[in-house]
Design a protein around this nucleic acid. Structure first.
Length: 469
RNA sequence: GGCGGCGUAGCCAAGAGGUUAAGGCAGCGGUCUGCAAAACCGCUAUUCACCGGUUCGAUUCCGGUCGCCGCCUCCA
C-alpha cells in the first residue's frame, strides 16, 4: 500500500483517493515570468513521478497545475519589455511546456490560467467576507487570520509571532490590521492591468488563485496538494485558511512537499552565478535523459546537490541503461524460459513496488532496476537467458518506466526493425568474411567506418550484433 | 530568535534495532575477444560525523556536541 509523507501530520500515512477511484491532485505551477530553472524543474519532476505512480497503482489521476500569469513579477516584466501582460506571459508559458516535454513529464489533466478565473476568485473572496474572515480597506481586501483558529497549523508557525522579531519584512504599502493578514484582492495601481470588482478595479492576490483553481476543477477537498517546501508558508497556509474559511470543509488531505535542490552546495541564485535553466544544460551538451535522471538521484524530501559532475555520472549511468535496452532485442537467445530469470524479474517487480510504496523512494527504485540489469547480464554471459525471459523482462521495464520515464524512447527505438541500409548490411557481412579470412585490417576498417556512422558492432559468441551509439 | 532537515566508501546515494550496509559513477586486477566494444568476476565502508544513554545487541531509537543546508510573507 502506498504511503506518503504528509506535511500536515509530519508522518508517513497510507494513501488512497477519498472516493477510491480518482486521485485528485493539485500542484502549484509556474509563475510565467522567466525560464524555469533546474530547481523548478525538480519539483515538476516530482509531481510527474507522483502522478505516474498513482496511475501505476491503478487510479485515475486528475492532476491540475495552475499557471500564474498575473502577479508583481509578470506585470513588471511586461512593463519592461513594453508588451501586454498576456503577450509577455504567453511566451514564457510556451517555454514552460517545452521544458516539461523535454524532460518527459506527462501533461497534467488541466492547466488553468489565473487570468481566466478572475470571476471565480471574486466569488470566493465574497464568500470569505460573508463568512466574516476578511475585510476591505481602500479597495484592498485582506484575510483576517485572527478569525481562523487553525491558522499556522500546517507550517507550525504561531500567528502571534508574525510581524514581530527581527525578521519582519512588513512594509507600509498596505493598510492591514494585523501584520499576518494577507491580501485577497489588490487595488489597482496606475498602469497596472486590472479587473473590475465589488471593491473597485484591481487584481487577485497570489494565494487566492490556487484556492480557486484547485476547487474549481477538483472540488472542495483535494486528495493531494504538492509544491516545494518554500511554499509551505505562507502560500499553502494561506490557501488552507481561504479555502476552509469559505467552504467549511477540509481543503487538502495530503500535503506533499519537495525539497529544494542546491547547486554545488549553495543555494541557487542569479547573483551567485549558479543558476541553471534546462536550456543552459542542453546547450552544454547534456541529455534530457541524464538531467531527468540526476533530478531523480535523491529522494524528493532530501535536498539535492546539483553539480555538473553529478550530471556526468548520470550520463554514464544512462549509457549503461541504454546499452542494455538496445542490445537486448538483438541478442540471439535460445528458445524457452529459465526459472532463475523468471524469479529474478518477479523479485524486481515486487521490490520496485515495495520501495515506491514507501513514500516514492525513487533512488531505491533505480537501485532495483540496475540490480536486475546486472543479474540479467550475468545470465546472458552464462548463456542462460531465454527468449521468453526477454519478453517478460521487457514487460517489467515498460512497467517500471511508466513511473520513472527514463527509457521511454530507448524502449520504443529498440523494438523497431533494424532498417539498416543494404549497404551497411553488406559491410557487416563483408567484415564477417574478412574476420573469418583473418583479414583483420579490413575488418577493423569496416568497424571504424560504421562507428563513424553511429553504428556500434559487438562480436558475440553467436555472431555480430549492432546498436546505435 | 522560531521551525525543518542533513552528516553512510574517492564522488552521488538508498537502507534496516541483530543474516553479506542496495544501486550508479570513478579506480585497480582479472575473464571473454584477433583487437575492440559490451558484459561478467574479484578488490575498493569490520563500518555509517563525534560523545554519552536505552538495549542482550544501534550505524538504525533517545539526549548532547560539532559541521552543513533550507524556511520564517519575492521564491519550486
Amino acid at each position: 500500500m502506498l504511503e506518503l509523507y504528509n506535511t500536515a501530520s509530519r508522518h508517513q500515512e497510507p494513501f488512497e483517493p477519498v472516493d477510491g477511484e480518482t486521485a485528485r491532485v493539485y500542484s502549484c505551477g509556474p509563475t510565467v515570468y522567466d525560464f524555469p530553472h533546474i530547481g523548478n524543474l525538480r519539483t515538476f519532476v516530482l509531481n510527474d513521478i507522483l502522478c505516474r505512480y498513482l496511475a501505476f497503482k491503478g487510479w485515475e489521476v486528475h492532476h491540475v497545475m495552475n499557471i500564474t500569469d498575473v502577479d508583481d513579477k509578470t506585470i513588471a516584466g511586461a512593463l519592461t519589455q513594453g508588451v501586454s501582460l498576456s503577450e509577455y506571459t504567453q511566451q514564457y508559458t510556451e517555454y514552460f511546456f517545452e521544458d516539461l516535454e523535454t524532460l518527459n513529464i506527462k501533461p497534467a489533466w488541466k492547466y488553468p490560467r489565473a487570468t481566466d478565473h478572475i470571476k471565480q476568485m471574486q466569488t470566493l473572496i465574497e464568500k470569505i467576507l460573508d463568512n466574516g474572515h476578511g475585510y476591505e480597506v481602500a479597495g484592498n481586501v485582506y484575510f483576517d487570520i485572527s478569525s481562523f483558529a487553525d491558522y499556522g497549523k500546517l507550517s507550525g508557525i504561531e500567528p502571534e509571532e508574525l510581524g514581530g522579531g527581527e525578521y519582519t519584512r512588513l512594509d507600509d504599502e498596505y493598510d492591514r490590521e494585523d501584520a499576518g493578514d494577507f491580501v485577497l484582492w489588490k487595488a489597482a495601481k496606475p498602469d497596472e492591468p486590472s479587473w473590475d470588482s465589488p471593491w473597485g478595479p484591481g487584481r487577485p492576490g497570489w494565494h487566492i488563485e490556487c484556492s480557486v483553481m484547485s476547487m474549481e476543477y477538483l472540488g472542495p477537498t483535494l486528495d493531494i496538494h504538492t509544491g516545494a517546501v518554500d511554499l509551505i508558508f505562507p502560500h499553502h497556509e494561506n490557501e488552507i485558511a481561504q479555502s476552509e474559511a469559505a467552504t467549511g470543509q477540509q481543503f487538502v488531505r495530503f500535503w506533499v512537499h519537495g525539497e529544494h535542490l542546491i547547486v554545488e552546495g549553495e543555494k541557487m541564485s542569479k547573483s551567485l552565478g549558479n543558476f541553471y535553466t534546462l536550456r543552459d544544460l542542453l546547450k552544454e551538451g547534456y541529455s534530457p535523459q541524464a538531467i531527468r535522471h540526476q533530478l531523480l538521484t535523491a529522494h524528493y524530501r532530501q535536498q539535492l546537490n546539483f553539480t555538473l559532475e553529478g550530471l556526468e555520472q548520470s550520463e554514464r549511468a544512462m549509457q549503461r541503461l541504454n546499452t542494455f535496452i538496445e542490445r537486448l532485442p538483438r541478442l540471439p537467445l535460445p528458445q524457452g524460459s529459465s526459472k532463475e530469470a523468471g524469479e529474478r524479474i518477479d523479485e524486481a517487480r515486487s521490490n520496485f513496488e515495495q520501495v515506491m510504496d514507501d513514500d516514492l523512494n525513487v533512488p531505491g527504485a533505480l537501485g532495483v532496476v540496475f540490480e536486475l540489469i546486472k543479474d540479467i547480464n550475468t545470465l546472458i554471459d552464462a548463456g542462460e537467458l531465454r527468449d521468453q525471459d526477454r519478453v517478460v523482462l521487457r514487460d517489467f521495464l515498460v512497467q517500471a518506466d511508466s513511473v520513472l520515464g527514463l527509457m521511454t524512447n530507448q524502449l520504443e527505438e529498440a523494438e523497431r526493425e533494424p532498417a539498416l541500409d543494404e549497404e551497411i548490411k553488406a559491410l557487416i557481412a563483408e567484415r564477417e568474411q574478412a574476420r573469418n579470412d583473418g583479414d583483420f585490417a579490413r575488418a577493423d576498417q569496416i568497424r571504424d567506418q560504421l562507428t563513424a556512422q553511429g553504428i556500434i558492432l559487438e562480436d558475440t559468441a553467436e555472431g555480430t550484433i549492432w546498436r546505435r551509439k
